Simulated assay, not measured.
Amino acid sequence: MSDPKLAPLSASAWPDVLADLENGFAGQLNVYRTMAHHPALVQAWANLRQHVVLDTSLGRDRSEVVILRAAVTLNSDYEWSHHVHRARALGFSDARIAALRGPTSDMNAEDAVIAGAVDEVLALARLTPGTLAALTDLVGSKGVLDLFATVGFYSTLGFIVNTFSTPIDDEIAQSLQADPLEATAQ
Rank of each mutant, 00 (worst) to 15 (best):
T166L: 05
D61W: 00
N30L: 03
G59D: 05
A178K: 11
D137R: 09
G116M: 04
E110N: 06
P8M: 04
V139I: 10
F164A: 08
K5A: 14
T184Y: 01
L41V: 15
D111M: 02
A70Y: 03
S175D: 15
N30M: 06
D20P: 07
V52W: 01
S105K: 04
N108G: 14
A46W: 12
H38K: 06
L181S: 06
H85P: 00
D16N: 11
A125Q: 11
A89E: 12
G24D: 13
I67T: 08
L74N: 11
Q174F: 13
D94A: 07
N162W: 13
A115E: 07
K142I: 00
V65L: 00
A19E: 05
R49P: 05
Y32I: 02
A19W: 03
Q50I: 01
A36E: 01
A123R: 02
V72C: 15
M1F: 05
H38A: 12
T150K: 00
R101G: 13
T166Y: 06
T128P: 01
Q43M: 10
H82Y: 10
A89S: 15
E64N: 06
D3F: 12
A149Q: 06
V161C: 13
V84T: 07
A185P: 01
D20G: 02
A44N: 11
R88C: 07
E171W: 15
N47G: 11
I160Q: 10
N30Q: 05
P129Q: 03
A185M: 05
L138A: 15
G152M: 08
A98K: 00
S12A: 14
T34Q: 08
V42D: 00
S81Y: 14
T34E: 08
P167D: 06
H37C: 13
D111G: 10
T128W: 02
E64T: 05
L145E: 09
D106T: 12
G140A: 04
L29N: 10
L181M: 04
A133P: 02
P4Y: 14
L100K: 06
V72M: 12
G59M: 09
V151T: 06
L124C: 00
V121K: 00
G130E: 14
D61E: 05
F153K: 00
E182F: 01
N108T: 01
M35C: 05
H82F: 13
A99G: 13
A123L: 09
G24E: 12
T104Q: 10
Y78D: 10
D111H: 07
D94S: 07
T150L: 01
A183P: 01
G24L: 12
N23P: 08
S63F: 05
D77L: 13
